[in-house]
Design a protein around this nucleic acid. Sequence first.
DNA 1: TTGGAAAATTGAACACTGTTTAATATTTTT
DNA 2: AAAAATATTAAACAGTGTTCAATTTTCCAA
Lengths: 220, 220
Amino acid sequence: MGIKDRKERDRQEMRDNILEVASNMFLEEGYDKTSIRNIADKIEYSAGTIYQYFKDKDDIFLTIHRQAFDKLFTHFNQIAQIEDCFERLYRLGYIYIKFALENPKLYDLMFIMHAPMNALKDELWDCGHSSFDFLYDLVQECIEKKRIKMHDTQATTMLIWATVHGLVSLHIRNRYKMIETERIEQIIMQALDEMMEAIKSPPVPEGGANPNMQEVDKNF
Amino acid sequence: MGIKDRKERDRQEMRDNILEVASNMFLEEGYDKTSIRNIADKIEYSAGTIYQYFKDKDDIFLTIHRQAFDKLFTHFNQIAQIEDCFERLYRLGYIYIKFALENPKLYDLMFIMHAPMNALKDELWDCGHSSFDFLYDLVQECIEKKRIKMHDTQATTMLIWATVHGLVSLHIRNRYKMIETERIEQIIMQALDEMMEAIKSPPVPEGGANPNMQEVDKNF
DNA sequence: TTGGAAAATTGAACACTGTTTAATATTTTT
DNA sequence: AAAAATATTAAACAGTGTTCAATTTTCCAA
């Protein structure tokens, strides 16, 4: 019964081979300029064979898309053991941006490229859905523990996600022409810092009765 | 000598006609699915004729792109007469988001669609450059007058732009699947409010000897 | 008004694209 | 070794952006 196993292995190997080649082409040339025939050429098969392993071009794209999200999620695990929720939120933002800056083309593929998805659009964004939930829970914790000054969890989650996404996507799509290339990455991180600082709850005076009081009696 | 004038008029009319039709198709179907032949069909000319009026498909796209930025700039003029710079900044964000929500497909075309531009990429983004400068100057004023708590103009400009762009682009590219459709636009505006509130300089206690004091002795 | 030059328009051609399918080649099972 | 199942291919279809020789239309001078 080993033949079926080997066949299954061969099939998976072929799939991986196609994904590997297609992934490189998507990342290097973009969706449009990646053609089935070019993929087929590179793996030294005819174009028709591709359709034995993937339903269509979108199927290939979506598989790569899914794998990319798995990769991002792996990075998220780094913050699991951080005690303080605000610090955890900050690190999450940092990791997200770092991932995007280190894998700009992959990020583009995940969040920007090829938006008018023909089908499977719902299934596709389940990955994004998980991302959102992950951030949502963290934001909720920060709000409950009054570590950030916001109150609406949904709006705040959106705000934070939008900010980091905006920062990196404008960079990736070359919209920061006005800033010296060398400084961009540093400034993006600085912008993250400023945002986190801005949303942080002000320190509460230790014995004070004034609810609006701030930064009084710092004793130095 | 009126013939040359009329010819010039006819030429411009033809160009406008092509742009009108192409614009609708780009907005409705996206870049890929808009073909020169389809444009030609709709204006009842052959495909070759298009090339008498535009260098290539990108030339058509970039012309529409430019016009879209002109449209956005027109809206920006609304805030010119607002005295208070922080209020002006807030209104600018509001107008930007409003424009994006009212013209989602146009916004997509301007900021997201068709990123791997073949040529003219530099010229293209001059419009974006102007946008950035406009915002930059305003942020600088807010920093100088200590109306926002930030200090680095470049990082803050980037942060604000990225935030509003992130908010609307995630919406436009359908990335807010997890939020009820009816609430999204309201929440986006709420997120803008929260961001503006978060970056605003804190009120200074009234009678203090605080060197950071501001808006004292207003006599009313 | 007519003839020739200039300009505008066309349709065919080229080299691509994603996808389907009938024919062929290979591998597995009987 | 024959039959069945599977894998691969080449050809075809309808589409794409773009170019170009041939044709039609428009213009202006004789």
